[in-house]
Design a protein around this nucleic acid. Structure first.
Lengths: 254, 254
DNA sequence: ATGAAGGTTCCAATGACCGGAACATTACTC
DNA sequence: GAGTAATGTTCCGGTCATTGGAACCTTCAT
């Protein structure tokens, strides 16, 4: 019997399998059957069954009455301890709320996570447009304001690496040409803020600025609005004030 | 070489070890060294090292510049998919906010998780008292209003099981006598709400009501306030309205 | 009833995992 | 800055947990 291996031939550890199973869940797929988990995790049914049983025993998965598996409460609980939630999220929240009061639009806070923009928080209400971002959700780096900021402030090597892989086209306006995107990123860093126009959602645009600490971009704040509503100079101004404000919050203690 | 075993002699799976390592983190200990993880997880250093390396590779742990390990962003991200966050938390938030407006006190929402009260959300500001509860944090079931509610609506067997283990004394007012606690739980269920008086924090009291779905108590909402501020009949009334409101939210779709 | 899909259990083979020991690095002491 | 303790990392042979195919059971649709 050949042991578990990736397509590349490297063995996969048991823990890696557990993580692979948990990684099958996303915003679109919150409740999965065993077969679905087996298919998505590329593990045989019997292996999936065992791994899932162990995750259930540990409280990392729960089986609902519909025989589907969901992420367990314990993962949520442990996840609350992550620095992104503990430090960034809580400290930025008041500033994001103020930003929302000032603009009436969707406010997003994102960090770089595994080559994507991870939305740490989103404040928005009925007044504002519907957006694709959600707290906890991921979006590509090249189709949103916050994503472009996060990418533009990366090292040149990291940027090249990102550009070397095919860029997904989310809307007809998405920039999928590496050369054009590179120009866009340079421009973004030079002017200090990013703009996206219908590159992620039709009709929507966004403006975003970095939150810098020690020269590194630790997060990005952005505003998402109907393209027709967007008063870019004003948004850039309030965003830069907010970015300063969050940076100071983060510096305060520790 | 004897394999990994629990004190009872049962073997521990690799995935169980990974979960054990992640379980070492809590609100008080968010950044742990390898030695600390080894000590707390009861695993040998070399095993801890390997397990930790795998968790880091999977994005479940990160090593900071201080050589300490923290919970990775990915756990937070996956945890956002847990029903507790997805359904309960988001749906209850507006009601909790209203409750806060009405009372000006700390509002807590908790569920039963592994024999403890898990605080799913807390709304409170400068006006309200300082409490021990935090979103993501755990507290004993017998020292808080929400805890008593969650326990009182459990099956008689589950209650007996809880009472059979020694009850921690958090303050001099904590009820640690199983007989007295049982009486208190019966009383709680009969009247439909729980009261705690300085049993968790000196000077503070709390009132809490269940959120019932199909006869089961799926969560508890509570108000924490200075004992001297507490107008119990009024709090019970607004809490019961809030409970109804949240129940309806949960019933709405799906 | 019948069949198909999904889920669970069984089991022999084996290689991933185990942890002690040796080594390397960092942090602390004087 | 040398000495030393504490912490972290690598190595490696033995072994047992892990693995996945196959058989079996359950659920659901028709």
């Amino acid at each position: 019997m050949s042991p578990a291996r990736t397509t590349a031939g490297a063995p996969i550890s048991s823990i890696g399998r557990g993580i692979a199973v948990l990684g099958c869940f996303n915003e679109r797929r919150r409740a999965l059957t065993l077969s679905e988990l087996s298919e998505k995790s590329l593990l045989p049914m019997s292996s999936t069954h065992r791994v899932v049983a162990e995750l259930v025993a540990g409280g990392f998965l729960v089986r609902g009455s519909d025989r589907r598996y969901r992420i367990g409460t314990r993962v949520w609980s442990i996840g609350q301890l992550a620095p992104v939630s503990d430090q960034l999220r809580h400290r930025a929240l008041p500033t994001l709320a103020r930003l929302y009061e000032e603009t009436g639009e969707n406010i997003t806070l994102a960090v770089l996570d595994r080559g994507q923009a991870l939305y740490v928080d989103r404040i928005g209400g009925e007044r504002s447009v519907h957006t694709a971002s959600r707290a906890g959700g991921h979006l590509p780096l090249h189709t949103t304001g916050v994503g472009k900021v996060l990418l533009a402030w990366q090292s040149p090597e990291a940027i090249e690496k990102y550009l070397s892989r095919p860029l997904t086209r989310t809307t007809p306006y998405s920039i999928v040409d590496p050369v054009k995107l590179k120009t866009e990123l340079v421009e973004t860093k030079n002017r200090g803020y990013a703009i996206a126009r219908q590159e992620s959602t039709a009709g929507n645009g966004s403006v975003a600025v970095p939150i810098l600490r020690g020269g590194r971009c630790v997060a990005a704040v952005g505003v998402v609005a109907h393209l027709t509503h967007m008063d870019i100079p004003r948004l850039v101004e309030v965003l830069q004030q907010a970015s300063d404000s969050i940076r100071k919050e983060l510096e305060d203690d520790h």
